[in-house]
Design a protein around this nucleic acid. Structure first.
Length: 466
DNA sequence: TCTGGGGTCCTAGGACCC
DNA sequence: TCTGGGGTCCTAGGACCC
């Protein structure tokens, strides 16, 4: 807190900017013929088992939702127009709106391709008449020294500046990016509440949660899993404890929550009170990426080893190429898969699943020498797969490499043989960069369907630290 | 006809070393 | 003479986000 003369104070404010039906509105902006019509953006391929990446407002009126399967969406809305997604287009749009946001605050945390947290400051004067209507303009380019950033003051104020900034952002996005691109903005005194505020009014919303009293009122009206950080599993566990609302959660002592949920208990205890101390992590302070992964759901269940091998090879080639592009090497290879459904619709086996989901499957990690060579990653993944697989048909398989570190000359061996391989790999990458993925590929990949990758350079920790 | 694909973080037990 | 304690790595598994 900074107190100047006449009791003026500076207060930290968080804005959460969340674009509505993002991929769908970008498509409608790009193609006027899609405007005002129910559209669904697909994964950009012709796979049977694909889901919608986004649905336009018009489609949502029919009950269509993001993540819904295509056949289901068609059943609800027979006239839905399916558009093949184009991730480059969305990234381009994201860069443009980030440029706008940077004009208002340097403290931006890119939470996902269509979500950003912004930290800004409110100059608050206890005498209401002193808050001028132009306050927002005054603080738009306000430079705040670091010691003020560290002060997280909890007090009440009307968030007049943030509100003005939010209005300006909305109108600039409309005029500079396109009138079909709308966002919902939530304003509050921490990230958790700003995100909640942003979700309360959609599309094109602007909601302020100004103080802890308002927070409690709002929390008491929403479901447990409407808070970012409480998902389906935790909700069910809470329900089993007889907790269905935040009001009830607030009555549970911290000791019981930490006993039941370990460190997550702390998060739950605070969330029920709207408390969140997590800082904004600007993109330039973001840590290195932790893992690179690909998974693929096959459009039919299969136990054909040759087919599985081909898919695995492709996935590992993609991973290796991305690792090389980022100049990283990794040493932990994880391969996991899901079995198909039993003909009667029952699950075949009851292995645990990684990562999450209703289908049974299994996964196993193996540690190898640091590498970013596709074949080496493949060999480890294949070993891992073979040791877990029970011979039943599978529907999905995935691979990841983690335990990453920057690639230094020492990582790549001194052996001539390896150097030679490096030269070949580099040449391969060059050609594929120029002419497209899998222009040149290992012989076993010939004649197999294309697996697309959806790049997202905005890596982030997508939840609140506990 | 039956939930895609890309990520992050936490915990706990066992192995291994000093 | 056969056991203590601390640290680190590996692996499996469980959550969550968009």
């Amino acid at each position: 807190m900074v107190s100047g003369s006449s009791g003026r104070r500076v207060m930290r404010t968080i804005l959460h900017i969340d674009f509505n039906s993002y991929f769908a509105t970008v498509e409608q902006q790009a193609n006027p013929r899609l405007r005002g019509k129910p559209i669904g953006v697909t994964g950009g391929d012709r796979m049977k088992r694909t889901v919608l990446g986004a649905a336009s407002v018009e489609a949502k009126k029919f009950g269509v939702k993001t993540g819904m399967q295509i056949w289901e969406a068609k059943k609800l809305c027979p006239n839905i127009i399916l558009v093949s997604g184009d991730s480059d287009k969305y990234l381009e749009c994201t860069k443009r709106f980030l440029t706008i946001l940077k004009a208002y605050s340097p403290y931006l945390e890119v939470f996902s391709i269509d979500e950003v947290f912004m930290e800004t400051y409110e100059i608050w004067d206890p005498a209401p008449s002193v808050i001028p209507a132009k306050a927002g303009i005054h603080t738009n380019h306000l430079w705040i020294p670091d010691q003020v950033r560290d002060d997280n003051i909890k007090t009440t104020c009307d968030f007049a500046n943030a509100y003005l900034i939010a209005q300006q952002i909305k109108s600039r996005i409309r005029s500079e990016i396109g009138e079909w691109i709308t966002c919902s903005i939530g304003i509050s005194y921490n990230k958790l509440m700003a995100k909640l505020a942003g979700s309360l009014q959609k599309p094109d919303g602007l909601v302020v949660i100004a103080n802890p009293e308002e927070t409690v009122k709002i929390l008491d009206e929403i479901a447990l899993d409407e808070i970012c950080g409480i998902g389906g599993r935790i909700k069910v566990r809470l329900n089993k404890m007889g907790i269905f609302h935040f009001k009830q959660l607030r009555q549970v002592p911290l000791e019981i929550l930490t006993f039941q949920f370990k460190s997550y208990g702390n998060f739950l205890y605070n969330a029920a009170r709207g408390i969140d101390e997590s800082p904004i992590i600007p993109f330039y302070e973001k840590e290195e990426i932790q893992s690179v992964s690909h998974r693929h759901t096959i459009d039919h269940d299969t136990d054909d080893l040759r087919e599985i091998k081909q898919i695995l090879l492709k996935l590992t080639e993609l991973i290796a190429r991305r690792a090389r592009a980022k100049k990283l090497v990794g040493k932990t290879v994880n391969c996991w898969f899901r079995y198909g459904l039993h003909p009667r619709g029952e699950y075949q086996v009851t292995f645990s699943v990684h990562p999450g989901g209703v289908f049974t499957g299994n996964g196993m990690q193996i540690t190898i020498q640091y590498t970013n060579d596709g074949l080496e990653i493949f060999q480890a993944a294949w070993r891992s797969f073979q040791s877990m697989w029970n011979g039943s048909k599978i529907r999905m398989i995935g691979v990841s490499i983690s335990n990453l570190k920057p690639q230094t000359p020492q990582n790549l061996s001194f052996l001539d043989e390896v150097k030679q391989k490096e030269v070949i790999i580099k040449a391969l990458d060059k050609i594929n960069d120029k002419y497209g993925e899998f222009t040149l590929k290992r012989a076993i990949l010939l004649g197999t369907p294309i697996i697309r990758r959806t790049p997202n350079p905005f890596l982030t920790d997508r939840r609140f630290k506990v």
